[in-house]
Amino acid sequence: MLSVCDAHVTFNPGTPLAVPALRGVDLDIEAGEFVTVIGTNGAGKSTLLSAVAGDVRLDRGGVYIDGHDVTAWPTEQRAAMIGRVFQEPRAGTCSSLTVEENLALAASRGGRRGLRTALGRGSERRRLADQVARLGMGLEDRLGALAGTLSGGQRQALSLLMATLLPMKILILDEHTAALDPGAAATVLDLSAEITGEQRLTTLMVTHSMRNSLDFGTRTIMMNAGRILLDIHGDKRKDYDVPDLLDLFKKTTGSAVEDDQLVLA
């Protein structure tokens, strides 16, 4: 479903501030796999996601989605195949559009947008309202409210619904619960697991929590310094616990994980 081949990315190349963010990443994801990505700050997790989404262009290597070579495609073209939830709740929704308008925008993703009324006919609007009701956030009564008036958790739930509204190839979740309070984070995370499980979505989720990286999904990848360090999948994944991950990290890199958030979260 998704292949990343020998991906290299360097920020600010040729300057004293040059930062190698990806240094040869190879990754193959099967349809229906839910991959969690973990790593210290600067490991390249978000860069990898941005490279798949199209926000970051590769210096070398390629990205293939469902057999298409999308390496040269701009983000908006890849968006037809990719649903995405951002870390920052404000980033994934439009504050000055209503809940319903945000959803309508997502409902026309990947299609040709024309001069038809965006909100559509009554039946389409009811269908959208039903979808919103399934989030269990009470948003179905606030369809006409501006997205800017929602709480962070509600906005992320809305983003999640917008990302998964249409059939697509890959769902990208970029630390989408990191900016929420613990209660809302748990709700949104459970909702993500529910939706991805129901629709059998191929998912790539970056998380800051080792616990979540093992509890959610079907495969765990650990990144360090722009490379994939560990790739745990299949039956043996069930036997792993957070201390095992820490040990493995130490064994492979020769240094302990110093990022408290990774261990504690």
Binding site: T75, F86, A91, G92, T93, C94, L105, S108
Partner: peptide, 8 residues
């Protein structure tokens, strides 16, 4: 950023 992610 959001618009691009919605294929705008």
């Amino acid at each position: 950023v959001m618009a691009r992610a919605q294929s705008v």
